[in-house]
Amino acid sequence: MITIDSLNKQYHTPRGSYHALRDVTLQVKKGDIFGIIGLSGAGKSTLIRCLNRLEEPDSGSIVIDGREITGLATHELRDARKKIGMIFQHFNLLDSRTVQGNVAFPLELAGFPRKEITRRVAEILDLVGLSDKAGSYPAQLSGGQKQRVGIARALANHPEVLLSDEATSALDPQTTRSILELLADINRKLGLTIVLITHEMSVIRQICGKVAVLDRGEIVESGPVDAVFSAPSSATMRLFLEHSTLLQGSGAGI
C-alpha cells in the first residue's frame, strides 16, 4: 500500500516560483494498477518521481508498505529504491550492455552472486518474452523490445511497486497495447502494485483499476475508473473523455 499525504513541491525559477504539486493526497492499494492522468505540465512526472525521491518533495509524506520514504536517510533510501522498480518513457537502457547485462544491472548493484544473477535474468527475460534477445544490444532492438528490457530490469530484484513514467508515450499504438498487456499480466501473476502516469485516456481505459486526475499540481478527481468515466466531476476529466469519444465517434461515422 502506498499512502501519499499532503505532498507539496515548488520549483523556483529566475522568473518566479510555481507549485508543481499542491497538497496531493492519494492512496494506492496493494495489487492495484493506479493511473494518474493529466495534461503536460500538470505535475504527473514530478509526482511519480517523488515516490522514489528522484525529486525531493518540499513537504508532506510518502509511505510505501509501512516505510516512510520521505523520512529515509541516503543509504536507507538506496535500499528502499532497490525494491521500487521504475520504467521510463525513453527506456534509459545502458547502450554498452547487452539485454542480459541490462537486466543483471540492478542485481549487481544489490550484490547478488553471479550464479544467482544468471538464473534470475533468464527467468525474467522469459517472463517478458525476450529470451532470444539476451545477447543483443539495445541499439539492435525495437522500441517495444527496449521497453520490455526496461520492464525486465525493473522487475529483476523482486520489487513491491512498479513506477511507470510515461512508459508507452514513445511507442506506437500496437506496441503500446502489447506493453500494457504485459504490465497487466505481470500485475496478475506477481500481484505487483503499479503506479503509472500518462496523458493518454486509452492507457487508463486498458489497464487501470483506479485513476486520479491531476490538474496544475492538484488532484481534482479520483476513484475507480468505471465510476470516474461514467460520471466525471472535473472539467479536466470531461475534456479528456470528450476528446477520446470524439475520436472514436469520428471513426465510427465515416
Partner: peptide, 29 residues
Amino acid sequence: VDRGKVEAALAMGATPLQIVRKVLIPEAL
C-alpha cells in the same frame, strides 16, 4: 552520457561510485 541513464541507476539504488564505475565510464568508453 544521457542523464536518463544516471537517473535509472539512481532509481535502482546505485551509489555515486557505482554510477561512475558502471554507468558513466562504460557508457562513455
